[in-house]
Design a protein around this nucleic acid. Structure first.
Lengths: 137, 137
DNA sequence: GTTGTTGCAAATCGTTTGCAATGAT
DNA sequence: ATCATTGCAAACGATTTGCAACAAC
């Protein structure tokens, strides 16, 4: 059960073009990205970049609090910048795109049962985006 | 891209001990269950039951609206009864258990941007459950 | 020079599928 | 008798890992 390869907190970090490229791609993106999308985008700068390195650095950046994981039912994990302020997501059932909803409904955390301590929450809305509503999707 | 094995709507359904067992286990459970958990529990009644059959019947039951999928970040999909009324989930970071939170905060759907039509939403709270807060976890 | 990092390929995990046998209608 | 369903094993897609070469310090 030892995780030999994953980042260990007592490990010294060194800078690398690959990690910088992954982070840069995520910072630039307007929506959460899938690992293969990150790979493709980052390969523009580093053609030899491999998918394993993308995953390794995603884990490191996640660990470092630089990126956040976005999970949507039935889909693989996407990644987004952690420096965008608190927000939630809207998943369009028609075009499958994921949109950012800025802000947050109030009092979500008070909704937990008594005695439960809430440290974070996640809210996802599903439906049809404005563009698809107009018939474009 | 044809999905030969998955349930097709124009297929006649027959009853089976296996499907009944899977559904029964889910109805009895107090929390959403993982497929291997469902397998183990159902094997009490049907020792030869295989994991593939569990997945097949989960898909059928999902399709029939009998069960619902519950997705939690970083974990594989759990399944719960669809006959429990609308609710949300609390994931304990300490004991890793998933708890049901009855009810729903108001106005979540109004939170979507103008022009977006919301058909459903999902809210998950993360933190420490009451039991783990008391030091049991 | 030490040791974190990479790229590749092989391994792993959860899930799905092909197929011949079985069971419900 | 039909044809949906099963169990098994093989296949699959996403993610992780071992390892030798490489690069940052």
């Amino acid at each position: 059960m030892e995780n030999v390869d994953s980042p260990q907190s007592d490990l010294q970090r060194r800078s690398s073009r690959q990690r910088d490229a992954v982070q840069h791609v995520i910072e630039q993106a307007q929506q959460p990205l899938l690992p293969p999308e990150i790979l493709t985008l980052a390969q523009a700068a580093l053609p030899t970049l491999g998918i394993a390195t993308v995953y390794r650095n995603l884990k490191i950046l996640l660990d470092a609090g630089e990126v956040k994981a976005v999970e949507l039912p039935g889909e693989s994990t996407r990644y987004e910048s952690a420096h965008r302020g608190h927000h939630h997501h809207f998943h369009c059932n028609s075009c499958q795109q994921v949109f950012v909803i800025p802000g947050c409904p109030p009092d979500l955390d008070q909704f937990a049962p008594k005695g439960y301590k809430v440290s974070r929450h996640e809210l996802t809305l599903y439906g049809t985006c404005a563009q698809c509503m107009r018939g474009a999707g």
